[in-house]
């Protein structure tokens, strides 16, 4: 028996919209800890890891660990039928082949339920160890989104370099080149608008802008984004989900062949 009641249902709507173009089908793993997901894109270049902790739900019942395979496009179709202010409850039975989404309007005058077919997904789970990163950049998520969008009109790849000067985003294309440098900026009253650079050593890595632009679909989930870089690891782009958990995107770099 599974029953998860999420008062801020819009969070689930946003999460699915953020990952559905990257991942087609995924297993949602439900345990006492919370609802989690790990999936790679079809070309195995990017990986998404989601955690919604049980404490973030108003009611959380998960009698035993369960993995539910869902088509994210179908899930998106169903969740789009929920209002932004609706409370969403996810219900499932052990061993069942469907899941039910119940939507309640804030004043309880409209209650809908949508039953979705589950699917068997043979997905591989990768172990992601804790790592020390050469540099961690925290910046406004809207700024990061703007940079990725702007640069993708000029080039296909971006070099992200962190030095003591700041974080530099560089691209090159047929029409020319572009460099955007963001310096550390802690002086603002609002911490969400700050750019904070923690650097242990300088790092410079190249990534496909197509993927970074896809990750920025999570921008509405969090005011700030954290970019963790190491020369020998995929970049981690993390959006915190208020009081509940996170959505992390891992992207393998491009290297000189």
């Amino acid at each position: 028996m599974l029953e998860l009641r999420l008062v801020q249902g819009s969070l689930l709507k946003k999460v699915i919209e953020a990952i559905k173009d990257l991942v087609t089908d995924a297993n949602f793993d439900c345990s006492a800890t919370g609802l989690s997901l790990q999936a790679m894109d079809s070309s195995h270049v990017a990986l998404v890891a989601l955690l919604l902790r049980s404490e973030g739900f108003e009611h959380y019942r998960c009698d035993r660990n369960i993995s539910m395979g869902m088509n994210l496009n179908n899930m998106s179709k169903m969740l789009k039928c929920a209002g932004n202010d609706d409370i969403i409850t996810i219900k499932g039975d052990d061993g069942g082949d469907t899941i039910t989404f119940m939507f309640e309007s804030p004043n309880q005058d409209k209650i809908s339920d949508f039953e979705m077919k589950l699917m068997d997904i043979d997905s591989e789970h990768l172990g992601i160890p804790e790592a020390e990163y050469h540099a961690i950049v925290k910046m406004p998520s809207s700024e990061f989104s703007r940079i990725c969008k702007d640069l993708s009109s000029i080039g296909d790849t971006v070099v992200i370099s962190v030095t003591k000067e700041g974080v530099k985003f560089t691209t090159r294309g047929d029409i020319g080149t572009a460099n955007i440098v963001c310096r550390q900026n802690k002086t603002i009253d609002k911490p969400d608008e700050a750019t904070i650079i923690e650097m242990n050593e300088p790092v410079s890595l190249t990534f496909a802008l197509r993927y970074l632009n896809s990750f920025t679909k999570a921008t509405s989930l969090s005011e700030s984004v954290t970019i963790s870089l190491s020369s020998d690891l995929p970049v981690v782009i993390e959006y915190k989900i208020a009081d509940m958990g996170y959505i992390r995107f891992y992207l393998a770099p491009k290297i000189e062949d």
Partner: peptide, 14 residues
């Protein structure tokens, strides 16, 4: 030539 590498080259299957 710049080549895209796979996420699998970094993390092992569990």
């Amino acid at each position: 030539i710049i080549a895209q590498i796979s996420i699998r080259q970094f993390y092992k299957k569990i």
